[in-house]
């Protein structure tokens, strides 16, 4: 029953959404122009495009943070009306509460769910261990490195056990080694507990490495330019060296290149 419903109703359905960005000063910008996109349950989709193409805006609209002015976005058939714990969000700059320790950050969503204290504590411990932050439970975010902050943010989001993960360039602020490590870990976590993931990035390799499908966006105004399926063995630790990987990156890079040039 549940599965047949999941087949007929997409988990995330974006229908002809347009969005105008109005800065306090300067002229208005058409950020998204009639964008349509469907994402199935437990699908891992990367949203790829040059900076300023509106990919983060689309994620914020799905998250319910910005008002939908034109078009519609449905989550399992129901129109988005504000943010909710069914859609967990991971931001580029971590968005940890600086006045809460790692443990208290991870417990935040659990408090809002109204779980009993010992259950909060148990779950927080589980997810902190999962992201490898055991021993740092009582540290404040200001005492952590960038990679550790993003692990803490990931644990906080996963602890709520959302059906969908919306990730806005989550590894964009990390150094190359940490980023690669975090990619492997995210993939491992997704394999253990598959969730619907919308992963915004401007890094072609990262998109191909992680996603089952890469959706390429064009530069301003943002439109969907292409949707490319990726069928690689993503469990392979040496995936970067495989010719199939290089081919896929080339294929998608050629789609992105024109847009990146236009965005200059």
């Amino acid at each position: 029953m549940v599965d047949s419903k999941a087949d007929s109703v997409k988990q995330i359905a974006v229908e002809r959404v347009s969005h105008v960005y109005r800065p306090a000063r300067g002229r208005t910008v058409l950020a998204l122009d009639e964008v349509s996109l469907e994402i199935g349950a437990r699908e891992f989709v990367a949203l790829l495009g040059p900076s300023g193409c509106g990919k983060s805006t689309l994620l914020y609209l799905i998250g319910g943070f910005l008002p939908i002015e034109k078009g519609a976005i449905r989550i399992e058939g129901a129109p988005v009306a504000g943010p909710g714990p069914d859609r967990g969000v991971v931001f580029q700059h971590f968005a940890l509460f600086p006045w809460r320790t790692v443990r208290a950050n991870v417990r935040y969503g659990l408090e809002k769910l109204g779980l009993p204290r010992d259950e909060q504590e148990r779950r927080a411990r589980h997810y902190i261990e999962m992201v490898g932050l055991k021993g740092f439970e009582d540290s404040y975010p200001s005492q952590l490195s960038g990679g550790m902050k993003q692990r803490a943010a990931l644990a906080r989001t996963l602890a709520v056990d959302p059906k969908m993960l919306l990730m806005d360039e989550p590894f964009g602020a990390l150094d190359a080694q940490t980023r690669s490590l975090m990619q492997s870990e995210l993939f491992a976590i997704w394999q253990q507990t598959p969730k619907t993931v919308l992963f915004v990035t401007h890094d072609v390799q990262e998109a191909v490495r992680l996603a089952q499908r890469v959706v390429v966006m064009s530069a301003r105004p943002g439109k969907i330019k292409a949707s490319v399926k990726v069928e690689l063995d993503r469990g392979d630790p040496h995936i970067y060296r495989s010719p199939a990987f290089a081919e896929k990156v080339d294929e998608i890079w050629s789609l992105v290149r024109d847009e990146a040039l236009k965005a200059q």
Binding site: Y60, G63, G64, F65, G82, P83, G84, P85, R87, G88, V89, F91, H93, A95, F97, Y108, G109, K112, L113, R156, V160
Partner: peptide, 20 residues
């Protein structure tokens, strides 16, 4: 984004005011 984080984890507007 802190405001958004709190809201996406289920905090009401008023609650978010107090929490964030």
């Amino acid at each position: 984004v802190l405001v958004w984080s709190a809201r996406s984890m289920g905090a009401s507007r008023l609650r978010m005011l107090w929490d964030v």
